[in-house]
Amino acid sequence: MHEWGIAESIVRAVLEYAENEGIKGVWEVVVSVGELSQLDLEVLRYATETLSKGTPLEGAVFKFKQEKARFKCNRCGWEWGFEDVKASIEEKVDVRVRDLEGGSDLPVHYMPELIYTYASCPKCGSSDFEVVSGMGIKVVRLKVDE
């Protein structure tokens, strides 16, 4: 359950930011979560709100929004989504990380950039493509009292 570690760091990062910027209260934290991370948004929400208790963030609403992954080939211009290649990646990649709390994950769950190792353009086969969206976890908006 990698989500709890990420949630803890998000809470700490927002607390540090608020302190450094002299922000009095934070009411809402909006986080964009790239589809490639394959994180459980409900676990993230529950974990951040639980971990905020007893801190200046207690009571703040955490909203996690999944950003769909889109790719564009630099060689042939083809565009595609994660759903177009996910099944073939799961089939051909034999590496899994066993979660000590149950289940197993593809390495992209921990390191989304490794999509460049596992995927290629479905049309021309090139590895020279862009991840247009859907990579990484970003705090995109805070609602605060100045």
Binding site: V95, R98, D99, L100, H109
Partner: peptide, 27 residues
């Protein structure tokens, strides 16, 4: 064997050294 948990990825034990290498993930 690659392991993960709440704090993230666990290094591999190799001759008493904790080791992280992408080699395990990409071959």
């Amino acid at each position: 064997e690659l392991l993960g948990g709440r704090r993230g990825l666990h290094p591999v034990e190799a001759s008493g050294v904790k080791l992280f290498s992408l080699y395990y993930y990409v071959g």
